[in-house]
Amino acid sequence: MELTINNVRPQYIADTGHSEIWGRTLSMMSPHHLHVVAPSGSGKTSFIHFVYGIRTDYSGTILIDGKDISKMGFEEKALLRQKRISIIFQDLKLFPGQSALDNIEIKRKLSPFHDRDAIAKMATRLGIADKLSQKTVTCSYGEQQRIAIIRALMQPFELLLLDEPFSHLDEDNRMKAMELIYEECEKRKAMMLLADLKKLSFLESEKSLRL
């Protein structure tokens, strides 16, 4: 997959200042990783949502393999989200009334990359194996974050979008989660686009851009 960000500026930000992304052209190919760093309110979530195709309030173009994502139809976008782009939302977007396992299964059954057993294995690695049967609304935010991570890793993808995915995890759990994400990206030879408040210590060697 090739992702091209071409002169993109959010309509609601008048001055994009010294951003290395807004108003610039950049291109990413599998299996590149890009770390977007910016303080709160500078548009990290907007940027991730623009790339995922759920918001179009920007100027410029975002191209997936040369195709403008804002011009894709509903079914085309659905297919893209099933097979090619996966995401971990900042606000997680879990079904609160469903168990952790059901939340993950809802995604896995849509386009399975792993079998059902993989869920338990990943949950064990991330320390939430005992939470799988629990309703997500009763889980802590950190636990929900790990459920959302496992859910995002259940499908095939060529691009993984992460929007502050470890904000409620301690350093140890961050490391475990990051290792798992790296392994899964490696398996798929996928790109990774991670947005966070500051550069994470274990991503020192990755390319990073300021928003």
Partner: peptide, 15 residues
């Protein structure tokens, strides 16, 4: 809310 979320994670509106 749930339908919106299903669409967000890749469920097809047609399906």
């Amino acid at each position: 809310d749930n339908i919106h979320l299903l669409l967000l994670i890749g469920y097809s509106p047609g399906w």
